[in-house]
């Protein structure tokens, strides 16, 4: 009886497992993607869209006098990466300070951190960008680029501070007590005991934030900062190849973010804690 029951429930599990095997997943994935692409192509054909994919490569690179020269999309990608990296570094620093204020014993510190968080989290990114460019811009003399960096840094600092706070809180209080009991100062406790232990809690959500940062950096195209999305728009206004360019731009973003996620997975494995 027991054996029969086991055998009866087996095929369902087996099918589920089979669905999740690597070859099956790849086949299903290809089928689904093909269906989507086919639908898009059919739709485009129906509206008489004239595909010109052959014109795309020259926006990546050109060969002039035997030399490979980077095209505008590559420059745009460079702009996106420079913008994202600068803003992310700033956001991490600001986020850490906000998290420390939030966790401190200072009533004023906690209030400031809380207000910052609520204001930033409850403002749409686009509105925040307009505030930085049209309001702070003239007041503090920010240009397009610095306004963009500032806006992205502040927006993501709020999210990152929550990641820090959660990571720090995930370390058991006994660690604080043990470190205090040997006379360590608060700064030493953070540096040698708490932060090293909270890194592994923070790595996965921080990767998510890097990916989000790269994607949300596209929004600065509304104030015409030279980055991938802006370049894409410019190319389209010259060529009217909107389908090809937007597909291409989306693919470039995806390649970059997949690389980031892949690196993070490697890092996570490397720093997996033995416990």
């Amino acid at each position: 009886m027991l054996k029969g029951g086991k055998a009866g429930s087996r095929p369902r599990i087996a099918f589920g497992r089979w669905l999740s095997t690597r070859p099956a997943s790849i086949v299903i994935y290809i089928l689904v993607m093909w269906a989507i692409v086919e639908a898009a192509l059919t739709g485009a054909a129906a509206m008489g869209y004239n595909w010109q994919w052959y014109r795309i490569p020259k926006y990546f690179y050109e060969i002039r006098e035997g030399q490979i020269v980077a095209g505008p999309l590559i420059w745009g990608l460079g702009g996106t990466i420079a913008l994202s990296v600068t803003a992310f570094v700033l956001a991490t620093v600001i986020g850490f300070v906000i998290a420390l204020l939030r966790l401190s014993d200072l009533v004023v510190g906690r209030a400031v951190a809380r207000a910052f968080l609520e204001i930033v989290r409850n403002t749409p990114l686009l509105v925040l960008l307009y505030v930085f460019y049209y309001v702070f811009g003239p007041i503090f003399g920010l240009n397009r680029y610095t306004a963009s960096v500032g806006c992205l840094a502040i927006f993501h600092a709020a999210l990152i501070s929550e990641i820090f706070r959660a990571g720090i809180n995930a370390v058991p209080t006994g660690q604080w007590e043990a470190a205090k009991s040997i006379g360590m100062s608060t700064g030493q406790i953070y540096r040698y005991i708490i932060v090293p232990q909270s890194l592994r809690f923070m790595l996965p959500p921080m990767t998510g934030e890097v990916v989000n940062m790269i994607k949300s950096s596209a929004i600065v195209s509304v104030i015409a900062v030279a980055e991938l999305t802006t370049i894409g728009r410019n190319i389209i206004s010259d060529t009217y190849m909107s389908f090809e360019i937007w597909f291409t731009v989306a693919a470039v973003y995806m390649v970059v973010t997949l690389i980031v996620s892949g690196c993070a997975t490697l890092l996570e494995r490397r720093y997996a804690v033995k416990d």
Partner: peptide, 18 residues
């Protein structure tokens, strides 16, 4: 902090740094 350096403490849950 000065006092804590002169007073050792052993906890129920050990609280070693993992």
């Amino acid at each position: 902090r000065a006092v804590r350096q002169d007073v050792g403490m052993v906890f129920q849950q050990f609280n070693l740094f993992p």
